[in-house]
């Protein structure tokens, strides 16, 4: 049952990737990146549940923090036009 969820999640990821390619502004792309990061996060958690390995959740935790930091820094970089 969880494998079906994984398939649907990867389909959503592909569709959001399409929006990243099409996105008129750079902020659309940043938003798409943020959405894909949270989809990947859910996929890691589902895999941890499927394989019943608790240490995979630590990877998900680190991924959540890094995804957040990346988005924040990219938004700042764009806002200051390079001069952070």
């Amino acid at each position: 049952m969880l494998t079906v969820v994984l398939a649907v999640l990867s389909f959503f990821g592909l569709v959001v990737m399409l929006r990243i390619l099409l996105g008129p502004t750079v902020w659309d792309r940043l938003l798409g990146l943020n959405l894909i990061a949270s989809k990947i996060l859910v996929a890691i958690v589902i895999l941890a549940r499927l394989m019943d390995l608790a240490f995979l959740l630590d990877i998900a935790l680190v991924y959540a923090v890094l995804g957040f930091l990346g988005t924040i820094l990219m938004a700042r970089f764009i806002e200051k036009r390079g001069g952070i």
Partner: peptide, 29 residues
């Protein structure tokens, strides 16, 4: 552990989205 991840993401996701929208608004979009 899952509760910890959920709490973290519930805190950080809105902040990240706010940063994106603010950077768009501040850059005069």
């Amino acid at each position: 552990k899952l509760g910890l991840i959920t709490a973290l993401v519930l805190l950080t996701n809105p902040i990240a989205t706010h940063a994106i929208a603010r950077s768009a608004h501040r850059s005069g979009y």
